[in-house]
Design a protein around this nucleic acid. Sequence first.
DNA 1: ACGCGCACTAAGCGCTTGCTTAGCATGCAA
DNA 2: TTGCATGCTAAGCAAGCGCTTAGTGCGCGT
Lengths: 191, 191
Amino acid sequence: MTTITARERLLNAAVEAFAEKGFAGTTTRDIASRAGMSPAAVYVHHDSKESLLFSVSLDGHRRALEVITSAAASSTDPVNRLRVMVYEFSLWHADNSRVGRIVQYEYHALTDEHRAEVATYRRDIEKAMQDALADGVDQGVLDVVDVPGTAFSLLSLGVDLVRWFEPGGSRSGHELASLHADLAVRMTRLR
Amino acid sequence: MTTITARERLLNAAVEAFAEKGFAGTTTRDIASRAGMSPAAVYVHHDSKESLLFSVSLDGHRRALEVITSAAASSTDPVNRLRVMVYEFSLWHADNSRVGRIVQYEYHALTDEHRAEVATYRRDIEKAMQDALADGVDQGVLDVVDVPGTAFSLLSLGVDLVRWFEPGGSRSGHELASLHADLAVRMTRLR
DNA sequence: ACGCGCACTAAGCGCTTGCTTAGCATGCAA
DNA sequence: TTGCATGCTAAGCAAGCGCTTAGTGCGCGT
């Protein structure tokens, strides 16, 4: 069995609260009570409300980068690789829509130092998608006029899921991720 | 010349503040000082902080719907109509990224009644895009397997601009809107 | 000259905020 | 049995919150 520490319970509570009400709209008392603890307990395990946000955001950025990096390594065929990358990136955002919402929408609430640190993961994610497109163009398989812009657009499909996606809704994450992957191929394949 | 009333100055100040700090992160004192007035002046012209948000959000939704509706009426050719709709919708979100951010990200901060009112505009926007795709399929010009999902994805391209777009950045709104329009046609055109 | 209404402000009320302080129960080593 | 570290809480502090109240200055019709 995996034991959940008090520190992790507070992090989970913070994810729920931040995703539901936003960082500024969440009180430390709310986080504490979701974790079944007193307001002061938050400060036994975490330095501040912002450091709770940073922990959640940093972990979320790392996991998103890991998803797209391993997808990029999954295939050598540019079309198939792109399909897998878009599928996995969108699926991750659907399956982790609460963390994703914090990653995407509470970025500005981080301190300057913390924002700069997670920004490196964002650049790596964009670079992975750009590299996949550029490689496909080099191999004469993809037709992409604007590589950075198209990379951004492909990532937007996944990112925008966190704005409205709820698990248990009428469409599954797999269904949406498959759609995005198909659209991505149509957008970029050379005819 | 157009005269700007105190009420409008407060609305403009609220747009700036909400877009920059979010609804919960903005104080009524901040709005007042951006408008060059005392904190109490807010309540001379508006009922509450939330009614300020509702005014901004409602107007933003109306303008976005107007943009996509008139784009839909601009052409009878399904491919060209889709191109114009996606172009205009994305361009509006780039040119109005601050209002767009409030429309998209502060939706949950509205009261239940206000959110329900604004939701009708969202449904109309989605329906306009779905109708344009369905009509193209009916005319045998477009190939769209999942009409609602694809409509959502096309709107996502524009909506996601508000997350990061800043006027005066390295890419113009026109440039990005053109890219989105091209991608939209590639995504949906029958080959 | 005067009175009235309107746009606005100074001051502050009751409450909530992030966070701190002081202390208490438990478990464990000696 | 004692001593102490650990993990937590009760209570509360200073600051800031949305919003109200009571009033002030000014423009305008008469």
